[in-house]
Amino acid sequence: MSKENKLGRRDFIRAAAAVAAGGGAWMVSHPNEQAFGWQLDPRKCQQCGRCATSCVLSPSAVKCVHAFEMCGYCDLCGGYLQPGAKAQDSGAENELCPVAALKRTYVEAPFYQYTINADLCIGCGKCVKGCNAFGNGSLQLQVKQELCVHCNDCSIARDCPAQAYQRVPIAKAYMLKTLEKGSEPTK
């Protein structure tokens, strides 16, 4: 059998997941207190890259989301720019995101807003790591429930080195870090 024709275990799971996708979408549109799905805790995530490569879906059901109230609207954004970028602009060679999913919009000197094109985002978490290290940690990964097919045994959860995944009620599935007073260390 040629390499191209071989149906690997992963391809099989992907094909099955595609069939299940309709059911997953239905579950999200009809959430009930009993329905459980998967979510990752951004406080535990180490941005290892597996959220992009281990999901049964391609691209992954994990996307970057932006907690705007935590963002510093920085010009020199650690999530947007390559660490060694020569210029602080939107030149492709300066962008950290491998698929140009992060968009930079000028607000007023010296502030910029950063938004994510979820259709492009593959959930790799590079921007999340840069934002955590150099900024406020406002960029965070989350399993998008409307995309997730709610595998019984989430294949990212199995591979996650940080044990960041847990079962959550789909109706309350998001667990972003926020800037609640007292929720963060003070200095």
Binding site: Q47, C48, G49, A52, P98, I122, C124, K126, D159
Partner: peptide, 10 residues
């Protein structure tokens, strides 16, 4: 699983 490549990690 193969380790995610360099383009997926910072």
């Amino acid at each position: 699983r193969t380790e995610p490549g360099a383009s997926y990690k910072l």
